[in-house]
């Protein structure tokens, strides 16, 4: 205790604000330079993804006929024509398409990790806290769901219900919580044997309240870290699906679909920028997210305390 807080104790008049573990974690996170820079980069990418289209005079689907047949030398990235990232091989503005693709990718990542965070946490915490037979049934269900090859099911769903972004969101949401529930259950098992949980039982707090008030807040560190690492995984999954041509449909696009087209262009060797611009955005996004996840893990790791 510092002298100052001792003085505060003695006066006893004003209420002293405590410093919660969250505030400690925030301080540690802010000390991590790579994580802070990445957080700003991610913020910038989000702003870019949602408002970037206003900077361009072109939209994502209109073909610029003035460049017809001359994409390879007139459609190069240039500020003069207003095609900042050039045009794709169809003559559509690549800047507008990248902005829109990034938006879809970020949304997929956030939806996937939010579903994982909410469903997975509640499911895992309930299974872990109740234990016994309930735990057995709940976790074996997860095992069964995990044993189904997810990519195969997602592709089947997209084929059966039509290729739409909604199905993709549902598909990603359906599987993303499985891993999370396992991790959370494991953590819950160690938390539920702590004395403060026993104290809550002895006080007479109901099981639902114990899970929500005592277990989940102590899990959040692990959950947040895992969620932040899940965002890139979800983006990669979506990119893979779109790369196969099953995800987002024209004229909409996503980073995966753009890379798919770009890879084709790379092969023909004409509009090669079509590959490099989305790739740069993609790599910057993934790196930023991984560094944020890393920073969160260091900040929230209970062993650091």
């Amino acid at each position: 205790m510092t002298m100052q807080s001792v003085a505060g104790d003695v006066s006893g008049a004003e209420v002293i604000e405590g410093r919660s573990l969250w505030q400690d974690a925030k301080r540690r996170f802010l000390k991590n330079k790579a994580a802070v820079v990445s957080a700003f980069v991610f913020l910038f990418l989000c702003i870019f993804a949602f408002f970037g289209q206003f900077l361009s005079q072109y939209d994502r689907e209109t073909i610029d006929f003035t460049l017809m047949g001359a994409n390879a030398y007139k459609g190069v990235p240039s500020f003069e024509t207003g095609h900042y990232f050039g045009v794709d091989s169809d003559g559509r503005d690549l800047y507008a398409r990248t902005v829109q693709g990034l938006r879809i990718s970020i949304m997929i990542g956030i939806v996937g990790s939010l579903v994982a965070g909410i469903v997975g946490t509640l499911y895992g915490a309930t299974a872990g806290y109740l234990g016994g037979r309930v735990d057995g049934i709940m976790m074996r269900t997860v095992d069964v769901l995990m044993s189904i090859p997810f990519m195969f099911v997602l592709i089947l769903m997209l084929v059966m219900f039509g290729r739409s972004i909604t199905i993709l969101f549902i598909g990603v949401g359906l599987i993303s919580w499985l891993d999370m529930s396992r991790i959370v259950r494991g953590q819950t098992l160690s938390i539920k044997n702590k004395e403060f949980v026993e104290a809550a039982v002895a006080i007479g707090v109901s099981p639902a309240k114990i899970i929500l008030r005592h277990i989940v807040p102590n899990l959040i560190g692990v959950v947040v870290v895992y969620m932040s690492l899940l965002v890139p995984t979800m983006i990669l999954t979506e990119s893979f699906i779109s790369f196969l041509g099953l995800g987002v449909q024209e004229p909409n696009t996503s980073l995966g679909a753009l890379l798919n087209r770009g890879a084709g262009a790379l092969q023909s060797g004409v509009t090669t920028w079509q590959f490099y611009f989305p790739l740069t955005v993609f790599i910057v996004l993934l790196f930023a997210l991984f560094f944020i996840g890393d920073g969160l893990r260091d900040a929230l790791d209970p062993k650091d305390r």
């Binding site: 919660s20 004395e195 403060f196 104290a199 002895a202 006080i203 707090v205 807040p217």
Partner: peptide, 29 residues
């Protein structure tokens, strides 16, 4: 019935939820 029988635990720190303020902990019963 639990409100009539209360308990004090061995490990003082472990018996308190680290994410709750002291006021919330004491008020919980």
């Amino acid at each position: 019935h639990r409100k009539d029988v209360q308990m004090i635990f061995q490990d003082p720190l472990a018996a308190l939820n680290p994410r709750m303020t002291v006021g919330d902990i004491i008020a919980e019963p």
